[in-house]
Amino acid sequence: MVMRIDCKHVWDLISSYIDGEIEPELRKEIDRHLDHCSICSATIDSTRNIVVLVADERVYEIPAGFSKRLHERLDEVIHGEAPSSH
């Protein structure tokens, strides 16, 4: 039997679709929907695009000297006290 899938159903599955967590049959059905629904396909593309962009290290500009300052501050603590569980 051919399943009919509507836009709202696709929106509910965007995240699972992007992560490849959809059963093959349902995925095929979504793909068929995306082939003719430009809104849903653009919605999934743009969502996935965000996921790709935020994972890019260039999004975060680490302040110049961050590492040096961190280890200097850490050094003061390390030479002042031993680690504990408290």
Binding site: I39, T43, S46, L53, R58, V59
Partner: peptide, 30 residues
């Protein structure tokens, strides 16, 4: 949680991350 329904945003190329305002928009949204 209706998404923004659009047809004109397919992909922003990663190279656009060289633009500071894009990086700031992503971080602001998060």
């Amino acid at each position: 949680f209706t998404p923004a329904l659009l047809t004109d945003w397919r992909e922003i190329p990663s190279a656009a991350l060289e633009r500071k305002e894009l990086r700031e928009q992503l971080i602001k949204a998060m």
